[in-house]
């Protein structure tokens, strides 16, 4: 009986917790402080989240391509891009010099044991999300040259 009751409660909980909890997964800043995507998206209405790694060539191509037009995107849509590196301890020390070496203007966060990657159920990187007012409104995995144009079209729908 209690079990049935419990199941009823669980089924009828009146909020959507899944996104909230997944975006709340603890990740680190480059300075080792704990933060989360929820914290970042609370401060910014329109956010692109890109999960990437230093060893992933398409990921770097995507972030390079966006970097070339990032200023224009920001002027038009006021978007903020947060690039979450899933590099583990083998390559995580490359993140900071690589980001500076490439002159990227993004906020960089670290998901070293892939807790966020798991919470978002991601099989491969790159993965791109558009988060509007704290809610995931678009999701795309993989990058092909020129796909940033499609992303921008999508982004403009959510201004």
């Amino acid at each position: 009986m209690k079990k049935t009751l419990l199941i009823i409660i669980l089924l009828t909980s009146s909020f959507i917790y899944s996104q909230e909890q997944a975006l709340g997964t603890a990740i680190k800043t480059l300075d080792g402080k704990t933060t989360s995507l929820a914290e970042f998206t609370a401060k910014n209405d329109l956010v692109i989240v890109s999960l990437w790694a230093t060893w992933c060539v398409p990921c770097k191509n995507e972030l390079d391509a966006i970097n070339d037009v990032y200023q224009d995107w920001q002027d038009e849509t006021n978007v903020q891009l947060v690039a979450v590196s899933i590099d583990d301890s083998r390559t995580v020390n490359r993140v900071k010099p690589l980001v500076n070496g490439k002159d990227w203007d993004y906020t960089i966060l670290l998901d070293t044991n892939n807790d966020l990657k798991r919470a978002l159920n991601i099989a491969t990187v790159p993965l791109t999300l558009i988060v509007k007012n704290g809610e995931i409104v678009f999701r795309h995995s993989g990058y092909t040259p020129g796909a940033e144009d499609a992303l921008y079209k999508e982004l403009k729908k959510h201004i």
Binding site: N93, R94, K96, P97, L98, V99, N100, G101, D103
Partner: peptide, 15 residues
């Protein structure tokens, strides 16, 4: 042991 230096446009890391 890891030591790095990085500034805009340049990055260096030793492990």
């Amino acid at each position: 042991f890891n030591l790095g230096y990085s500034a805009k446009g340049f990055g260096l890391n030793y492990t």
